[in-house]
């Protein structure tokens, strides 16, 4: 750091040598820890050529897994968005007792292991579970079936939309909504024409993160799916099965699809953060 005086480094930064050393170490570690795993997914998927990779994705089991993953996300996302919107409206626009507790409860899924979430669902809906007999008597199947997969996904992604919307809605004043009501708009009209447009980017952002997590969820879904091939195997579950059967190309081709989804998610997320940073709460947290 002897050169500080000579090169007149600003006092609010480190010496050039320190900056160089720190950046190199940190960037090298980032490449090894974050980028290498991503690169290896595509390298392994294409190892036997793109044709083999496409063939693996075209297998009936693979197509069934893709369809199921899309179906689960298509059911879970709107429900989650509606719950998140309701949560944000109640919490951001009104004061009531027990609000802090309610916010904590919304965040609970963040700190529960996905496997424990799956276990809890099995204990509630499975055979021998609390509601197991009742469900059986009415011929309703939740565990090892689509409803179980949806419930597990909903549990894991529950906080995503609410966490994004609450701070954004809280920052916007109630004045615009009050004006709409004064001018005679109904509650639904106010929601449609004032509230939703105001939070649309934040809502999109929350749904985007929710979707990435929903399509990639493994732990909770693994417990409740029963892994019935072609019926309850989502893409991540199929990846595990293929990998354990040493079908490397097939496993990594499926993984490359999900990795592509992750990259698209990150690109959209970066775009939203860059273009609409002022309308997002999340530019300040994960």
């Amino acid at each position: 750091m002897a050169d500080t005086a000579l090169h007149a480094t600003p006092v609010t930064t480190e010496a050039r040598s320190v900056r160089l050393a720190l950046s190199s170490v940190v960037l090298a570690l980032t490449a090894v820890l974050l980028l290498a795993p991503l690169a290896v997914v595509f390298a392994e998927a294409l190892r036997a050529g793109p044709l083999a990779s496409l063939q693996a994705i075209g297998q009936p089991d693979a197509l069934a897994a893709i369809r199921l993953t899309l179906l689960v996300a298509a059911i879970a996302l709107p429900l989650n968005a509606a719950a998140g919107l309701a949560a944000a409206w109640a919490i951001a626009k009104f004061d009531f007792r027990g609000k802090a507790l309610l916010i904590t409860l919304i965040d609970v899924p963040f700190s529960v292991s996905p496997v424990v979430a799956g276990l809890a669902l099995v204990l509630l809906y499975g055979s021998g579970g609390v509601l197991g007999d009742w469900l059986k008597a009415h011929d309703l199947k939740i565990v090892f079936a689509l409803p179980g997969l949806v419930l597990a996904t909903l549990f894991i992604t529950f906080p995503f939309v609410a966490r994004e919307l609450i701070p954004v809605m809280a920052e916007q004043s109630r004045a615009e909504e009050e004006a709409a009501l004064t001018l005679g708009a109904s509650g639904w009209r106010m929601l449609r024409t004032v509230t939703l447009p105001n939070v649309r980017w934040a809502l999109l952002y929350g749904v985007l993160l929710c979707n990435a997590r929903a399509m990639g969820e493994f732990g909770a879904v693994a417990v409740i799916s029963g892994k019935i091939r072609g019926q309850t195997t989502t893409m991540p579950i199929l990846i595990e099965m293929l990998y354990n059967e040493y079908l490397s190309t097939a496993a990594f081709s499926m993984a490359a699809l999900l990795a592509t989804l992750a990259l698209v998610t990150l690109a959209l997320k970066s775009f939203l953060e860059w273009r609409h940073a002022d309308l997002l709460a999340a530019t300040r947290r994960h």
């Binding site: 980032t30 974050l34 980028l35 795993p37 991503l38 997914v41 993160l209 990435a212 997590r213 399509m215 990639g216 969820e217 493994f218 732990g219 893409m235 991540p236 579950i237 990846i239 595990e240 993984a255 999900l258 990795a259 989804l261 992750a262 990259l263 998610t265 990150l266 690109a267 997320k269 970066s270 994960h286």
Partner: peptide, 13 residues
């Protein structure tokens, strides 16, 4: 942007 990769990449992958 890459820092968020672990949030977006499925854990099984």
């Amino acid at each position: 942007a890459a820092v968020d990769l672990p949030f977006a990449l499925p854990t099984a992958v």
